[in-house]
Amino acid sequence: MSNERSYTLLERLGNGLVKENPIFKLALSMCPAVAMTNSVRNGFLLGLAVLFVQVASNVTVSILRRGIHERIRIPAYIIIIATWVSVSDMGLAAYAPGFYKEIALYVKLIVVFAIIISRLEVFASRNPILPSLYDGLGMGLGFMFGLMLVGCFREFLGAGTLWGFEILPFKPFFFWSLPPAGFFAIGLIMALFIWLERKFNAWRAKR
């Protein structure tokens, strides 16, 4: 099962942030990306929760990869993800109540995020611990980056603020704060993202 390819931290970060960005390239976990990106702060907190669970689940599955039976791997992954979500929920509630108050909502939501289980299936179940850890970091940060980018776009245009701080004394286009605007924002940024990547690849090929 083990992949021959060697994965470095930088390569995995680049992969998660750009090459296989969960939102703009893989188009996974789009529901939260649409629903919770009307502010940068929401995007950051959700991204942070996903980052922790992705890294912890990737490492766990990588450790247990030879012990999990092929035919029950999906329920096993779900149990692992749910366990880490519950552990972080209980741990934060007890030892970081201030932070928990901010992040509790997001932690509980991520059990069913497609991005997490897909990385377990595609990567962590086939690779050793270290590359799986790097992949979790790359994908988690890539997801956070995607959410924050959409959040910046929508919060600035919809509320005239960034991270809650007033940038414009008026709301330029309130539509962008409403839930359906998430589809438009992601579509536009996705198009821009792919266009920029193609331009960059063409420029690199020329050199």
């Binding site: 247990l64 012990g67 999990i68 039976h69 035919r71 029950i72 329920p75 096993a76 149990i79 692992i80 749910a82 366990t83």
Partner: peptide, 12 residues
């Protein structure tokens, strides 16, 4: 399979 799933559930 049952033992495998049971073990994961028990550890969890």
């Amino acid at each position: 399979i049952a033992a495998n799933l049971l073990a994961i559930c028990l550890v969890s």
